[in-house]
Amino acid sequence: MTDLRIAAVGDIHLGEDVRGQYRKKLEGIEDRADVFMLAGDLTRHGTLEEGRVVADELRGLPIPVIAVLGNHDYHSDLQYEIASELRDAGVIVLDDDGVVVQCGDKKLGVVGGKGFGGGYAGKCASEFGEREIKNFVSHTRYIAEAWKVALKEIVADHRVVLSHYSPIKETLEGEPPEIYPFLGSYLLAEAVDTAGADLILHGHAHKGSEKGMTPGGIRVRNVALPVLGRAYCVYCLNCADDLQTHP
């Protein structure tokens, strides 16, 4: 039985004052996991200086590193420059698109991006009324559609979605319900349920809960560092079914 091992964390919020500290926690990650995923909010204020600290902490890791940005990384309007710094350091940065990485004899497809808010079915914003509200909701709708298309196009043995915002409210438990619409949107879950995936990873909700599931039964994990309390968690996708199909 071969497992595909995914190390994941979000919301590491690095800055110059903690330079070098997170990297120490990643020592030996190649023995524990096949790929490392970061679910956004890598910086505190989205400055280029902080982006460079993150790039240096992740540079040259012996396994593929895949990241999305979070709302904090957008704060200084330097998200493209930060993504560029990360890419120069060898990090694959997803922006509502997908990538396939080879992990041993398995192809892992990863689709994702920052995601956005709007709320959850029955208690959410809709594209109605003021232009500002319509823009808010249509931004999430655009992202969800892009993920759906990317998931359908990808050819891989396993598919994982990497987001910053949450696709479900179960993994927000612990956060005040009043702010749920700013923490994610059911449109993200609906898109992934339609296209199919093995696992969804997200961050953003520091006070939320680790484990949940979409209405379609796809496992969701909130990997925000304050939720995990650890440098990262490892999730193993079981490849036993594939082995049985191709003995």
């Binding site: 650890r230 490892v234 996708l237 036993a240």
Partner: peptide
């Protein structure tokens, strides 16, 4: 202050 400790037990999703 949250100190990120070493990773714990792996979770197997099967």
């Amino acid at each position: 202050v949250v100190e990120a400790t070493a990773p714990g037990e792996d979770e197997h999703l099967d």
